[in-house]
Amino acid sequence: MRNLLKKIFLVDLFQGLWVTFRYQHPRNIYTEQYPAERPKVAERYRGAPRLNINPDNGETLCIACNLCALACPEALIVVGSERNEATRRKELTTFTYDTSRCMFCGLCEDACPVDALELTQDFELATYTREGQIWDRQTLEEGPRPTPYKC
């Protein structure tokens, strides 16, 4: 009998509708207005790579040890180095990082002994060209430059 009454008066449906109704208050609505309102990503977020430079003298921190290239599962880092005859040390010449193949696992930054390579909180990696996804040393140090749109 009770079940029949419950059925006739649509108790189950109103129960569900009440849950929906409870969240109708404008306080519960949240829409992120994305380009105007930036999401705050976590401190440990693994995003766009960056090659750190020493802020005092503007020289790169990278010692061209090639450990990041060896640690990378996709082998997308290419480190170019040259031996400086005066100081007898290896110096970084080129650094290529292919972000199109990167899965942001963070193994390269774990491998870096001097904290030169770092995955930053920057998450906007879209480019207009495929070539724009391959970052050279200048891009890695200064951040990505927007590719001009050809029309």
């Binding site: 990503v41 976590a42 401190e43 440990r44 977020y45 693994r46 942001f104 963070g106 995955l119």
Partner: peptide, 8 residues
């Protein structure tokens, strides 16, 4: 919580 813990 995942993002804060491990970055992804």
């Amino acid at each position: 919580i995942f993002e804060k813990y491990c970055g992804a």
